[in-house]
Amino acid sequence: MLLIKSYDRAHRAYQAMVAKGYTGNPKTLTRFNLQAEEYLLSLALILVAILLYIDQRVFL
């Protein structure tokens, strides 16, 4: 019974979103483009997070 109610509620929510113009594609005011420096910054932050995780696992 709970599964049926959940499905029905999700379907009604989706129908309401479609009625308000939802298409599934996000709309933004500007085009999103990553530059090379942003890729490098992201890579550096990921590497720092990995190193901190490894450091925590080794020294505990």
Rank of each mutant, 00 (worst) to 15 (best):
A36H: 06
K27N: 10
T28A: 11
L29D: 14
Y22C: 02
V48R: 07
T28N: 04
L41T: 14
E38R: 01
L34V: 06
E38N: 11
Y53F: 13
V48A: 11
T23K: 14
A49V: 05
V48Y: 14
L45S: 08
T30P: 00
K27Y: 02
Q35R: 10
T28Q: 03
N33W: 05
R31Q: 09
L34T: 09
I46T: 11
I50Y: 06
A49I: 01
I46W: 08
K27Q: 08
L40R: 10
L51A: 06
L34D: 06
L47G: 13
P26E: 06
T30C: 11
Q35L: 10
L34H: 08
Q35E: 09
L43C: 04
Q35D: 13
N33K: 09
E37W: 11
E37F: 10
G21N: 14
T28P: 00
Y22M: 05
L52Q: 06
G21I: 11
S42G: 12
L40Q: 15
L41I: 02
G24V: 01
A44M: 06
N25V: 13
A44T: 06
L34W: 09
L47C: 07
L29E: 11
L40S: 11
G21K: 14
Q35C: 03
L29Q: 11
V48D: 03
A36T: 07
Y39D: 02
K20Y: 13
L52G: 02
K20E: 15
I46L: 12
L29N: 11
L29M: 03
G24F: 03
L29H: 07
T30E: 13
L51N: 04
T30R: 06
N33T: 15
G24Y: 03
K27F: 03
V48P: 00
K20L: 15
L51P: 00
L51W: 05
Q35N: 12
L47T: 08
I46C: 10
S42V: 01
A44G: 01
L45I: 05
E37S: 13
L47S: 13
Y53Q: 04
T30Q: 14
L45R: 12
A44F: 08
I46H: 14
Y39S: 02
K20I: 06
F32E: 13
T23L: 05
G21V: 10
